[in-house]
């Protein structure tokens, strides 16, 4: 089985004297798996996501994602890694207000140096797939929360990432929009996309994930795969 994520003894401390915000933690995620990370506030969910995305560095252990050990990479190499291997969806969408929907979606492709036409074609495909093609020239500020999150998902997928990371993707949405995004993530997983999902929303975790882990105080309190084996 190919592992997209391999964490070995990973720890992250923000204060040298106190206990680590996360870990030490061992975790693997297989290709095609949909993992939901749950836990109370401050349990280390977002820290885990940031470490996997290469947005943050562990204070201990190793992080290997899509075959690349990223904990020792330079900032430049990490940026290249992110743009080529990772797609990210945030709770508050994190779209650039100054750019149109199309420009937002194309941005990661353009950062990799993808040809303009290729990036535009790929963005068009994704907008059509996600049902937002009519908003192609609109600005994010004019869209509903659900539509904005669809734009964010399209942007995350534009470079065909090995791993899609979603941080509370329905946390800022009303229930109808939340349901919409939930179905979208399910569809993506069914199409073979490896997904790691951080959420408080157990219904979302249940609907989208093939495996759920629960963090408490930075430690792995529950792993549904292990539980199932028992």
């Amino acid at each position: 089985m190919n592992h997209v994520i391999e964490l070995t003894g990973v720890a992250r401390s923000y204060d040298g004297a106190g206990p680590p915000a996360l870990g030490p933690l061992d975790l693997t995620v297989a290709e095609g798996e949909a993992l939901a990370v749950t836990g109370p506030s401050g349990s280390g969910k977002s820290t885990l996501l940031n470490l996997v995305a290469g947005l943050d560095r562990p204070t201990g252990g190793t992080v290997t994602v899509a075959g690349t050990r990223i904990d020792g990479l330079s900032e430049h190499a990490l940026a290249r890694f992110r743009r080529e291997r990772i797609g990210m969806v945030f709770q508050f969408f994190n779209l650039l207000d100054d750019l149109t929907v199309t420009d937002n979606i194309q941005l990661p492709a353009q950062l990799t140096g993808t040809a303009r036409r290729t990036a535009a074609t790929r963005a068009g495909e994704l907008m059509e797939l996600l049902g937002i093609e009519r908003h192609a020239r609109a600005y994010p500020g004019r869209l509903s929360g659900g539509e904005r999150q669809r734009v964010a998902v399209a942007r995350a997928l534009v470079n065909r990432p090995a791993l899609l990371l979603a941080d509370e993707p329905t946390g800022a949405l009303d229930s109808a929009s939340g349901q919409d995004v939930r179905e979208l993530l399910v569809d993506l997983h069914r199409s073979g996309q490896t997904v790691v999902l951080v959420t408080h929303d157990l219904a979302l975790a249940e609907a989208c994930a093939t495996r759920t882990i629960r963090l408490v105080d930075g430690q792995l309190a529950l792993d549904s795969r292990t539980e199932a084996l028992r």
């Binding site: 430049h76 940026a79 992110r82 779209l95 650039l96 941005l107 950062l111 942007r155 470079n159």
Partner: peptide
């Protein structure tokens, strides 16, 4: 800073 953070999370390198 937020926009730059978004760009970085999408893979914008320090030199970019």
């Amino acid at each position: 800073v937020r926009d730059l953070g978004i760009c970085k999370s999408l893979g914008m390198s320090p030199s970019q």
